[in-house]
Simulated scan of single mutants.
Amino acid sequence: MQDYLFEIQLKVRDYECDIQGIVNNAVYQSYLEHARHEYLLSKSISFKTLTAQGILVMVSRIEMDFKKSLTSGDTFTVKLRTEKKGLKLLFYQDIYRMPDHALCLNAKVEVIAQINGRLNRGEIFDTLGF
Rank of each mutant, 00 (worst) to 15 (best):
D18W: 00
A35R: 00
E110G: 08
Y39S: 01
H37K: 02
G73Q: 05
T49G: 03
Q114T: 10
D65F: 13
S30R: 14
L90S: 02
T51W: 05
T71W: 06
V78D: 02
I55H: 00
D74V: 00
T49D: 12
T71R: 14
L70M: 08
Q53F: 03
Q93V: 08
D94N: 15
I95P: 02
K48S: 11
K108E: 09
E110S: 14
N25E: 09
L103C: 13
R13F: 05
R97H: 07
N25D: 13
R97D: 06
G54W: 01
I19R: 00
E83I: 14
R13N: 07
T71Y: 11
I22K: 03
V23C: 03
I19V: 14
A102M: 13
N24D: 12
K85H: 10
K67W: 07
V23T: 06
E7N: 09
L80D: 04
N24A: 15
T82M: 10
Q9A: 09
K67N: 10
H37G: 04
N25W: 12
V57A: 06
S60R: 11
S30F: 12
L105A: 10
K68V: 14
V109A: 02
S60E: 14
M98C: 13
T82K: 08
M58P: 07
G54C: 04
N116Q: 14
H34N: 12
C104R: 01
L87Q: 09
V78H: 01
I19Y: 00
D65Q: 15
E16R: 00
G73R: 02
K88A: 14
L105H: 09
Y4P: 00
E110T: 13
S42P: 05
I22E: 01
V12C: 01
N25S: 14
Y31W: 10
L89Y: 00
